[in-house]
């Protein structure tokens, strides 16, 4: 564990907390892509199956459980609790366009042909593109709320800082994982492209957000 990894993980937690608190406080999931949240749910579930097979540290296990649980909560809030506020007519990206290539690529390019490893690889590829439905939803709606800007910046910087962590680990520990590095670079590029795609989108303030 180094400072880059810890800082990145904190940003990851901050991003998720931003999203959940927004839904909770405004009792609305307007502007949030349920499809991206489903993809993130899949990412965490397929990656953290090693909770049952490998123990790394208490920190590691607690964070994994946190990501799986909060992701399930987000999906529950969007599709059950605050279903009426979910803007499904704006959340139109077809997730099979992301799921199928990631599934195929993880079967072809992985570290080892065993189920857990292929699922970990799938999860790593999928995470790099999971934000795309959210970016398209914002683009389609033409407006973005401030919480979503914070969410995207925090989520984008989390993986970018992981890139620094990987460079650091390569230098200090001669440790590297090409699949993680490749996907991390792709993920960071997608967030940067996303910010270009969204420039010109109007920053809106929702009525409910202004309530104390």
């Amino acid at each position: 564990m180094n400072i880059f990894r810890f800082a990145a993980d904190l940003l990851h937690v901050f991003a998720i907390a931003t999203l959940l608190l927004k839904i909770w406080n405004t009792r609305s999931c307007a502007g949030i892509s349920g499809k991206s949240q489903i993809l993130f749910g899949l990412v965490y579930v397929t990656r953290y199956l090693d909770l049952f097979t490998t123990y790394v540290s208490l920190y590691n296990s607690v964070m994994k459980v946190f990501f799986v649980v909060t992701s399930a909560v987000a999906i529950f809030l969007i599709y059950v609790q605050y279903k009426k506020t979910y803007e499904h007519d704006l959340d139109l990206f077809r997730i099979e366009l992301l799921l199928l290539p990631c599934a195929m690529l993880s079967l072809v390019i992985n570290h080892e042909d065993i189920v857990l490893e292929v699922l970990w690889t799938f999860s790593t590829y999928l995470e790099s593109v999971a934000i795309i439905p959210q970016l398209f939803m914002v683009k389609k709606s033409g407006g973005i709320e401030k919480f979503m800007i914070r969410y995207l910046i925090a989520f984008g910087s989390y993986r970018a800082i992981y890139l620094i962590n990987w460079a650091y680990r390569y230098i200090m520990e001669s440790h590297y994982d090409l699949i993680a590095i490749f996907a991390g670079i792709l993920q960071t590029i997608i967030y940067i492209l996303g910010f270009f795609l969204l420039r010109g989108v109007k920053v809106v303030v929702s009525d409910k957000e202004e309530e104390p």
Binding site: T54, V56, N60, M63, K64, F67, H175, A180
Partner: peptide, 10 residues
């Protein structure tokens, strides 16, 4: 390469 397959990151 067992070390690489123990994914110790999140």
């Amino acid at each position: 390469d067992q070390d690489q397959l123990t994914h110790d990151e999140l």
